[in-house]
Design a binder for these strands. Structure first.
Lengths: 199, 199
DNA sequence: CCGCCCATCTACCAAATGGTAGACAACCCC
DNA sequence: GGGGTTGTCTACCATTTGGTAGATGGGCGG
């Protein structure tokens, strides 16, 4: 399968981009095919249904996301440094592969079964993150919150700051690389304050 | 128009709910009609096209949102009290009319022209909010941030905490009224820390 | 009482969409 | 050299979808 894999990988790339930016339902097999200069029957040769294509996109993307989180955690210290490392990793991903984060939003919007599939892959990481936050709070190195709700808040803030392009423009900011850097700084500042222990 | 308005209002209600939860493209005129026990031609009698229906839904929703924000601002004091009042108003809305916030997300996702339409209505409020935050920072009553990015962060966090139901469930929390109260408390705590001036 | 208007419907249309079946060419291996 | 496999295509199908045109019945006003 490695030989002809060029086409199926190109299909997955195009599908990821379109699903993550235009949405799953707004993306037709014909428009994807047109972008790739192939026929939709070729897509259906590699992926028997449109849902199967989505499933393959999610599988690959979830793996890539998990890898990005893992690499963000490598070398990270404790407490805030670790949170910062992960947030920076997500922003790096946003810079290189914005469609991935767009897909995360889209899949969450679609609900089960796509959302379930994505979550099954990311769940171990989410549990580790939650456990880590709880341990830091128990050790008194981080202000006490419900770790799960804190995770949701972090997720919401980070993903929103990265993907809510229309709202960003409405606020007078263009979605440039420079703006992304500033948004990252803001998110880190906000989260650092929220997590800090104060006397 | 008041006489026959029963049907067109019911259409708008059903459309809001479906657009806000399933998405615009995933909602067909036929399925909306079925829910209302009418024919899609009846929908097209009141709204000439599906896009016109969306536009009408946005117009009504944006007005309702603006009103909720305004009412949140009434009676509010200064600084943090004002931010808290607005956040509480949004959570009240989330409890009563969750589909409204779902629509906000969906419209932002769709981009122009729907996003432009929504933003045109909310822009004056966003400017007031931004100006307010800037004035508070200038007066030294609030930690200094870029007011526009802070607004985006607040928007992202609040909307995410309210609407990211799949992620919430993945974190082991059911989207109940009780959970909404706890999420509100968390968001307020997080934002309060972020905005606090510290010595 | 009748005509007009409104609101809902039936019938229909064209295009889009996801999908199936088989043709065909290139390549590889026996 | 021929048969089989792979990957791409054409042709086609059924259903869905957004929309149009005109029929119909109820209600209201002159």
């Amino acid at each position: 399968m490695g030989g002809g894999g060029g086409t199926s990988d190109r299909i997955l790339d195009a599908a990821l981009t379109s699903f993550g930016s235009r949405g799953f339902e707004a993306t037709s097999l014909d428009t994807l095919a047109k972008q790739l200069d192939i026929r939709k029957q070729t897509i259906l040769y590699w992926f028997p249904t449109k849902d199967a294509l989505l499933s393959a996109v999610i599988e690959r993307s979830a793996a890539e996301l998990a890898q990005a989180f893992e690499s963000g955690l490598e070398g990270a210290g404790e407490g805030w440094a670790k949170v910062e490392a992960v947030v920076r990793a997500v922003f790096r991903l946003a810079a290189r592969r914005p469609e991935l984060l767009g897909l995360v939003r889209e899949v969450a919007r679609l609900g089960p079964p796509p959302a379930t599939q994505m979550i099954e892959v990311l769940d171990p990481l989410m549990r580790r993150a939650s456990d880590f936050l709880k341990a830091e709070m128990d050790a008194g190195r981080m202000r006490r919150h419900d770790p799960r709700l804190l995770l949701l808040a972090i997720y919401s803030t980070v993903i929103g700051m990265v993907t809510e392009v229309e709202v960003l423009k409405a606020l007078g900011e263009e979605p440039t690389a420079r703006s992304l850097v500033r948004r990252r700084a803001d998110v880190l500042e906000l989260l650092r304050s929220a997590l800090r222990i104060e006397e």
